[in-house]
Amino acid sequence: MAKPRLTNQIRLLRFLANEMTQAELGERIGLTRQTIAAIEAGKYSPTLEAAFRIARVFGKPLEEVFQWSD
C-alpha cells in the first residue's frame, strides 16, 4: 500500500483533550472506534464532512488536524 499522503494529528489532539479515547471521539461525530483508528493510522481518508466534524470537536481549523504531504 502506498504511503498515505493525508496525515493527521488526531492522536496528539486526543491526548491533549484529556486523553479522549477513540470511542469517545467516534461517538461525538458518528463514527465507530475502528474508523477513528483507521483514520489515525492513515488507513482511511475521511469524507470532508467527517474531517470538519473532527476538527470542530478539538476546536481547531481543519488544516491543523489534517495535512497533505507532497
Partner: peptide, 8 residues
C-alpha cells in the same frame, strides 16, 4: 447496534 458509519 450502532448504524454503519461512512467507512462501513
Amino acid at each position: 447496534r450502532a448504524p454503519a458509519d461512512e467507512r462501513d
